[in-house]
């Protein structure tokens, strides 16, 4: 589903991603772990071209993202086409980013592909009764669930989650993870940047550990979490797992 090949990305003189390659099969759940500043979010944002890669390629379902290949040249796509590509990829932000002037229902229908299905999607995240509520009237957990419904309204090939529970009060994390767990069970292709190790262990097919802009280690949870091969993975996990 996703093929990332040799991706580099710098912000000024700061190299955030160095030669990252990663395959995500359709229907799988990939969790990206790593210390802050390791490039997790940037990698995720490169997948739907919210960040432009400096070198390397990102393909989703075989389609080159953000560029058109012509011989040995990659031509940047006009924004119109990039927007079209993004409309196949759901993205869930750490800070929800719901449109505050629209109700939950309007937020979900704004993603346009299925305006008629908006209520059904809200029902799927357990918020059909909040359809008329504005984001400000919802708790953080409810807002994030609406944001997930909005991402699903695209009928996306895959959904990217950028630390979806990091801005939530601890008691609200569970309801969002429950929704994500259901999505995973339904066979949605998901890439999740998170610090929820428990969720990663339970739901992930593959765990990718990123440090200093490189993939240090990847594999199924039992390998990466319980028997990490790399010193830096062990150091990170020892701080996160108590």
């Amino acid at each position: 589903m996703i093929e990332i090949r040799g991706v580099h990305k710098s912000f000024g003189s700061l190299e955030v991603l160095r030669d990252v390659s990663l395959s995500v099969p359709a229907g799988s759940v990939t969790v990206i772990l790593g210390p802050s500043g390791s490039g997790k979010s940037t990698l995720l944002r490169c997948v739907n071209h919210l960040e432009k890669v400096d070198r390397g390629t990102v393909r989703v379902d075989g389609e080159l993202i953000g560029y058109r290949q012509d011989g040995d040249k990659l031509h940047e796509l006009p924004e119109r086409l990039v927007l079209k590509q993004r409309a196949n990829i759901g993205f869930v932000f750490q800070t929800f980013n719901l449109f505050p002037h629209m109700t939950a229902l309007e937020n979900v229908s704004e993603a346009r592909r299925n305006p008629g299905r908006a209520l059904e999607l809200l029902d799927r995240v357990g918020l059909a009764d909040k359809a008329k509520a504005y984001p400000r009237q919802l708790s953080g957990g409810q807002q994030q669930r609406v944001a997930i419904a909005r991402a699903l309204a695209l009928d996306p090939k895959l959904v990217l989650f950028d630390e979806p529970t990091s801005a939530l009060d601890p008691e609200l994390v569970g309801e969002v993870l429950d929704v994500m767990r259901d999505l995973a069970r339904a066979g949605t292709t998901m890439v999740v940047v998170t610090h929820e190790i428990g969720f990663a262990r339970e739901v992930a097919d593959t765990i990718v550990f990123l440090d200093g802009g490189r993939i240090v280690e990847q594999g199924p949870p039992v390998e990466v979490l319980d028997n990490p091969q790399h010193e830096r993975t062990r150091a990170f996990l020892s701080k996160v797992l108590i």
Partner: peptide, 11 residues
């Protein structure tokens, strides 16, 4: 972030 959310939805 509002523009970013809209861009991510391909609007």
């Amino acid at each position: 972030r509002q523009m970013e959310a809209a861009a991510a939805l391909g609007i």
